[in-house]
């Protein structure tokens, strides 16, 4: 199984453990994710706010590179996914913003990594290979915004109540808890400019996870994880609460459940240390 891989900019930095766990898990599952040669930034949250042309042409460049290689383009980042999908839609309906000579034939698909890992054949392999079931681990799935919204761009089916992460958690033997904040916004794009707003949004999400009696949160987006993981202490302090809610990339939990090597190194990179919880649940 082969796909082109668009890692996005944060995988070498703040989301390093996401990249590391993707490598280990995908090679175990026999998936070849080949990094798109010469990829450049998709423009993320910035381009569409101030420059319409760049908001399409930056991701479009990568899409065209990928089409030459004839494999579907998989990305682990919600923002990259959203921009690549927006470009896909714009190129297929001949947007006036894009050079009309740009030949995009729409022969490859853009997939978020979560979608890719939810393919039926992969689900079967994962089900067979679980070595260490996540027994008694109560998990809320956090999808955030751009993996699912707007459905006209993402082609998501259950945008108000997505299931892919929940399904994977159940598959791994964990307890997937329903909560109403699966797709609530964490304020990602405002992190560096309006920290007070972001703190309030994160605080609401953490409060809801507590109320749902979750042990931890699972996500599929670098910015969601950075926001939810790194600021628990300061937000909790202001409210007189200790959250201590580890936040995982779904690929880290897959690595754990499949009994793969390297999980320790990933978990060490988190600011809200997941190891005490995993030890208490006898998963480490």
């Amino acid at each position: 199984m082969k796909a082109s891989f668009f890692p996005g900019c944060s995988l070498e930095g703040t989301a390093r453990e996401y990249g590391e766990s993707i490598d280990v898990v995908s090679s175990f599952l026999g998936i070849k994710l080949e990094e798109l040669p010469g990829w450049t930034c998709c423009g993320a949250s910035a381009a569409h706010c101030i420059n319409e042309f760049l908001s399409v042409s930056l991701p479009a460049r990568n899409l065209l590179l990928a089409e030459k290689l004839k494999h579907d383009l998989v990305t682990p980042c919600a923002a990259c996914f959203s921009r690549l999908k927006a470009a896909e839609k714009a190129l297929t309906k001949e947007s006036k913003e894009i050079d009309a000579s740009t030949p995009f034939r729409g022969e490859i698909k853009v997939l978020h990594l979560l979608e890719f890992f939810s393919r039926e054949d992969l689900i079967e392999i994962i089900k067979d290979q679980v070595k260490r079931p996540l027994s008694n681990l109560k998990v809320v799935s956090y999808y955030g915004c751009l993996i699912v919204r707007p459905p006209q761009i993402t082609d998501a089916k259950n945008w108000e109540d997505p299931q892919a992460l929940d399904n994977l958690i159940s598959l791994m033997g964990g307890e997937s808890i329903f909560w109403p904040y699966k797709t609530e916004c964490c304020g990602g794009s405002l992190l560096l400019t309006n920290l007070d707003i972001v703190r309030r949004l994160i605080g609401r999400i953490l409060d809801m996870a507590r109320e749902a009696e979750a042990d931890c949160i699972v996500t599929a987006c670098p910015l969601c994880l950075a926001n939810l993981d790194t600021r628990q202490e300061e937000i909790g302090k202001a409210k007189g609460i200790t959250y201590n809610l580890p936040v995982f990339y779904f690929t880290e939990l897959l690595g754990l459940a499949l009994g793969l090597k390297g999980t320790q190194r990933w978990f060490r990179r988190h600011l809200t240390d997941p190891r005490p919880l995993l030890k208490a649940k006898q998963l480490m």
């Binding site: 949250s45 910035a46 381009a47 706010c49 101030i50 400019t193």
Partner: peptide
């Protein structure tokens, strides 16, 4: 004002 400055800085970095 900080928000458009952020976006501009972002694009300049790219």
């Amino acid at each position: 004002p900080k928000v458009p400055i952020f976006h501009r800085t972002f694009l300049n970095t790219i």
